[in-house]
Write a protein that binds this DNA or RNA. Structure first.
Length: 595
RNA sequence: CGGGGCGUAGCGCAGCCUGGUAGCGCACAUGGUUCGGGACCAUGGUGUCGGAGGUUCAAAUCCUCUCGCCCCGACCA
């Protein structure tokens, strides 16, 4: 590919709508352009990267014996009603009606479609033990798309679905996918962790996320270096099994104190000269139907996912300010557990609260708190659960060591679904004993377009992208310097030779000044750059430099192509070696080896 | 859903407060001088000032509505 005839438009200015590094660089390098909120076009440089990720995914999926198919992205409401997800999936499911008045959705995922396909064909356990996957555009009507293609509404995803006759076989399928995913991430040059995860709208009872480690990630991971424990903070238990807690039996008279303007834990703590750990805060919650109160220590944060599970509701939110004022009959900031009975349906508390005695809490009266209060003062049932969010330095629930937290981007997720969908949709088979049973399923997703952005998030410098070799839209970027016939001829010859070897190559043959070309080469981020200039040609050499700085040398003209091929080969081999290593280690890392 | 910000040339912005008929840089085109890390000179083209309505002799500028985009929050109790 020659620059003068390629559709590549780079920019010097930083587009004002982008703040995240990968978003800025994708725009500046001319990889993507936004059409609408969360909806992007992929231009040649971007789409090549997407296809390179897809190719790696395809190779690793095929390696496991999975078979590629393509399912419709327009899906009739009927199958979604069968699983109940037409109602439960929520507003992220984009729905529309066709000319006949029939209801459809644009596929955000394909459990229903693939289960329908399989139930029509499979009759016997002899047919089972397969995995179908596709790479296709998905649409999820995200409430707040952001960060370019990292969290778009329309995106390309690889989704795979395994079908097995029994739980043992299904778990083996799950583990096969975990290994394949680890290999994919490693080949793409990504630093990642596989963590235990929530199953969300997809459902199921076992799930791992492949989290790409970066401070710009949206997810928080709880990791223990001691035992390798790794879990999404959404799920992370704050208390290990059997950890005891001595409940306080303290009682005594509390006093009401005037705390003007002290709304927050910090303000109350400094006003009353107590530690935040001596304060009990009361958080009012709404589940869509009822209000609840949750109690926790002043320095803690509530994990709303844990709360919703304990309450047995789909989702809980913080109550609105107006609701808080109505329930507490006070301004926001003075809610307390004493006297809240009757105003809310249930009162739950974090386990840690059991041990608290003589604490400070809100008085349900503007500008007032209670001092020296005790649990005995609350005249209603309080149920104690693990409700708080785990933070840096908490004890590891598995080994008792210290956990730390890290941010990540979810690049892929695996779900062990069991018979959740097959039962609802009647996807059954006859087992060896002639008994009709539902199929054991798993589903597995990789965000193909998201991985392109994640790769940039992890691999860039002040000058631009540093593409991992497998992702790079061009592997070799030739810069011609100087306007002489010789330069044009030799650069062209090297370009043709590399292209003939099936390697993606870009020759910058524009009549631009060297500085412009070098800066664009840095921005576009090809792993290997060749400079062909008058200066080198006079000595019969060209320059070969790796974008990551690992190679910086000259090569004689006649061996330049071979040398570049050798450098690239070593990069590809290193990627594969990482894949072998991570793929071999991942089951041990996740603790799945034993199951 | 809540809060904040921004829409003026392809991109980045100024002009708006204090109304008078639109400008800067980059990019683009042509010519020339340059040519190893974002050159210089000259010339040139480019705008329904996001849209609709209103006020006014006159609106990018003031008022109302609307559309689009970005960021933050949804853990203050």
């Amino acid at each position: 590919m020659r620059y003068t005839s390629a559709f590549i438009y780079t920019t010097r200015d930083v587009p004002k709508e982008a703040t995240m590094t990968s978003h800025v660089l994708l725009l500046r390098a001319g990889c993507v352009r936004m059409l609408s909120k969360g909806i992007y076009s992929y231009l040649p440089m971007g789409y090549r990267a997407v296809n390179n990720v897809a190719r790696v995914v395809r190779e690793e999926m095929d390696r496991t014996g999975a078979q590629e198919i393509l399912m419709p992205f327009v899906q009739p409401a009927g199958i979604w009603r069968e699983t109940g997800r037409w109602d439960s999936f929520g507003a992220e499911l984009l729905r529309f009606t066709n000319r006949e008045g029939a209801e459809y959705a644009i596929g955000p995922t394909h459990e229903e479609v693939v289960t329908d396909i399989v139930r029509r064909e499979v009759r016997s356990y002899r047919h089972l033990g397969f995995n179908l996957y596709q790479i296709q555009t998905k649409y999820r009507d995200e409430p707040r798309p952001r960060a370019g293609i990292l969290r778009g509404r329309e995106f390309i995803m690889k989704d795979a679905y395994s079908f097995d006759a029994d739980p043992d076989a299904a778990r083996r399928s799950y583990k096969t996918m975990i290994v394949a995913y680890a290999r994919v991430m490693a080949r793409l040059g990504l630093t990642f962790r596989a963590v235990q995860a929530d199953t969300g709208a997809i459902g199921g009872d076992l799930s791992h996320e492949f989290q790409i480690i970066t401070d710009s990630g949206e997810d928080i991971l709880v990791l223990c270096d001691g035992c390798g424990y790794a879990v999404n903070v959404e799920l992370a238990p704050a208390y290990g099994e059997g950890w005891s807690c001595e409940p306080s039996t303290a009682s005594g008279a509390y006093e009401k104190v005037h705390t003007p303007g002290a709304h927050t834990v910090g303000e109350v703590a400094s006003f009353l000269k107590v530690a935040p750990t001596d304060i009990m805060k009361t958080v009012l919650l709404f589940d869509g139907d009822n209000f609840h109160a949750a109690l926790l220590r002043g320095d803690r944060e509530l994990n709303l996912l844990k709360v919703s599970r304990k309450l047995g509701v789909r989702e809980v939110f913080l109550a609105g300010d107006d609701d808080v004022r109505r329930i507490t009959k006070a301004d926001v900031g003075f809610a307390g557990p004493v006297g809240i009975e009757g105003q809310v349906k249930t009162i739950v508390a974090d386990r840690e609260v059991q041990a608290m005695a003589g604490f400070v809490c809100g008085a349900n009266e503007t500008d007032h708190h209670l001092r020296n209060a005790n649990l005995a003062d609350i005249r209603a049932n309080v149920a104690f659960f693990d409700l708080r969010k785990v933070t840096e330095g908490d004890r590891c629930p598995r080994c008792g060591g210290q956990v730390h937290t890290q941010k990540g981007i979810e690049g892929g997720q695996a779900f062990y679904l069991g018979t959740l969908y097959s039962q609802k949709m009647g996807a059954t088979f006859l087992d060896a004993d002639g008994v009709t049973r539902p199929i054991e399923m798993g589903c597995y997703g990789i965000g193909v377009t998201r991985l392109v952005a994640a790769a940039i998030e992890q691999h860039n410098d002040g000058k631009g992208i540093i593409w991992p070799v497998e992702v790079a839209p061009v592997k070799v970027h030739i810069v011609s310097v100087g306007a002489s016939i010789d330069v044009a001829r030799e650069a062209g010859r090297i370009h043709d030779g590399i292209e003939a070897a099936g390697i993606q190559v870009l020759l910058d043959d524009r009549p631009e000044r060297p500085g412009v070309k070098f800066n664009d080469a840095d921005l576009l981020g090809a792993p290997v750059r060749i400079v062909v200039g008058d200066r080198g040609l006079a000595k019969g050499i060209v320059e070969i430099k790796a974008r990551d700085g690992s190679v910086d040398e000259t090569a004689p003209l006649d061996s330049a192509i071979d040398r570049v091929k050798a450098v690239l080969s070593s990069f590809f081999e290193a990627s594969l070696a990482r894949a072998d290593e991570r793929g071999a280690a991942i089951l041990r890392e996740t603790g799945l080896e034993r199951t």
